[in-house]
Design a protein around this nucleic acid. Structure first.
Length: 291
DNA sequence: ATTCCAACCTGATAGC
DNA sequence: TGCTATCAGGTTGGAA
């Protein structure tokens, strides 16, 4: 699932295909849960526009358009943003045979889940946004305006401070993991990196947030930054559907210490990694190393 | 103010 | 083998 590192890698790699190229037409699927801004309006607004800059806030991609408005995209759980030239076995498993060109085993062809398709004036490679479950979202934010979804976001996970996490947790009886997943506190943390950071910081995910010390909050924020920087370096985690814009897999899943390793040996103590539900999410931790 | 949970969606997989 | 039930998870919004 795309969290901050996957969104950041996507941003870095799709930017060269998006920025500075005049959009001839945007093709979309029918109106659905995926579209916050209706697709017809999106198509009209994007035709003839150029993306000036592609930014990121938490898990959101923000494309700054030449006339001042912003196209905002969230990849949800299964969102994939990639080039029409992308080549990936994963596009096969993610979407079945139907989307593949018969002669090219791994070449993708837009299907019913391909909600956005950017075609450019230069006639070069197109850019696709595909999302089978439609948990992703797309919206157009007019020039000078904002949107509650963006307004609500806390400090970006790469820049958050331990002190701000400490302050945010003082009155909260919910599990510390629930607070880490709360995008209004720290933006960009999802299930994988929450579990990984809690392990590195030695904090049990189910511990009540107000019981986490100032020092542990510092360790948690450091751990979040550390795992995310490393993940960005290695191209993100391809655990379920994530692929980079060129179709390649990330490699961070090879380095994960607890996520989806339940029953396996803890990398630190050799004990068994356990899985249970915390904050309504599948949660992986080592009962020995995390207190 | 905070916490909990349902709803949104569909591919993968466990169970029968 | 083939079908059905269940699960996964990010975010919102309403109820407790």
């Amino acid at each position: 699932m795309p969290e901050l590192p996957e969104v950041e890698v996507t941003r870095q790699r799709i930017a060269p295909l998006l920025v500075g190229r005049r959009i001839r037409a945007l093709r979309t699927t029918r109106p659905s849960y995926f579209f916050i801004t209706p697709p017809g309006r999106l198509r009209r607004a994007l035709a003839g526009r150029t993306v000036k800059e592609l930014g990121r806030r938490g898990k959101y991609l923000v494309a700054q358009l030449d006339e001042g408005s912003r196209l905002v995209v969230h990849l949800g759980m299964t969102g994939q943003l990639f080039a029409s030239t992308a080549v990936s076995e994963r596009l096969l498993s993610a979407s079945g045979r139907a989307v593949l060109e018969p002669e090219a085993q791994v070449r993708f062809r837009p299907d019913a889940h391909t909600h956005l398709r950017f075609c450019f004036e230069d006639g070069g490679a197109e850019v696709y946004l595909r999302d089978a479950r439609k948990f992703g979202k797309v919206m157009l934010v007019p020039a000078g305006e904002s949107h509650p979804r963006l307004e609500r976001l806390g400090a970006d996970a790469l820049e958050a401070s331990g002190e701000s996490l400490y302050r945010a947790t003082r009155r909260r009886t919910a599990a510390i993991k629930a607070v880490l997943l709360d995008q209004s506190v720290i933006a960009g943390v999802g299930n994988i990196y929450a579990d990984e950071a809690l392990f590195l910081a030695g904090v049990r995910p189910g511990r009540r947030a107000r019981r986490v010390t100032r020092r542990e909050c510092g360790r948690l924020v450091d751990a979040i930054r550390r795992v995310m920087r490393r993940s960005i370096e290695t191209g993100g985690s391809s655990i379920s559907d994530y692929i980079a814009p060129d179709g390649s897999d990330g490699r961070y899943q090879r380095e994960r210490r607890v996520y989806a390793r339940d029953g396996e040996a803890c990398v630190a103590c050799g004990g068994r990694v356990r899985k249970r539900v915390v904050a309504q999410r599948g949660t992986h931790y080592c009962p020995t190393c995390q207190r």
